[in-house]
């Protein structure tokens, strides 16, 4: 019997974010899919569930907050982590009220987000 890999979807309109995160997370054993267009990511989450979704907030088209609502309505057990370059107390509070697992302001080190993902993974496996 093999352990199923924890699946992670990353959505950020800046390609550099996924470029940095994907290899690091794959090295840690995660199955990672990345998107830079929110509508493409939306199509994907309607096709399959992910254990963890990491999404930017400010994007063209569907915003991160709207995307998170879609994720949660489609798959309530998915843990969502918000990453944003434009953090405010209000957006953080709104994110938590909508069920976000954690909220990270950019810039962050890979170690910081890896810790958050690990905690989200532990929660999703409970």
């Amino acid at each position: 019997m093999t352990d199923k890999k924890t699946s992670v979807l990353i959505l950020d309109d800046e390609p550099i974010v996924s470029k940095r995160l994907k290899p690091s997370l794959e090295k840690k054993g995660y199955e990672v899919e990345t998107f830079t267009v929110s509508l493409d990511a939306l199509k994907r989450i309607r096709e399959r569930d992910f254990d963890i979704v990491i999404t930017d907030l400010k994007m063209e088209g569907l915003s991160g907050m709207e995307f998170m609502s879609e994720v949660k309505s489609h798959s309530p057990s998915t843990e969502v982590i918000i990453i944003t370059g434009f953090a405010t107390m209000d957006t953080a509070k709104e994110s938590f009220s909508k069920g976000v697992f954690d909220f990270l302001a950019k810039p962050f080190k890979l170690g910081e987000i890896a810790e958050v993902i690990k905690r989200a993974e532990e929660k999703s496996r409970k």
């Binding site: 800046e14 974010v17 940095r20 370059g85 434009f86 953090a87 405010t88 950019k106 810039p107």
Partner: peptide, 14 residues
Amino acid sequence: SQESLEMINQLVTL
């Protein structure tokens, strides 16, 4: 660096 652009974003937002 990307980190610096992001730090500016946070400062501008704040």
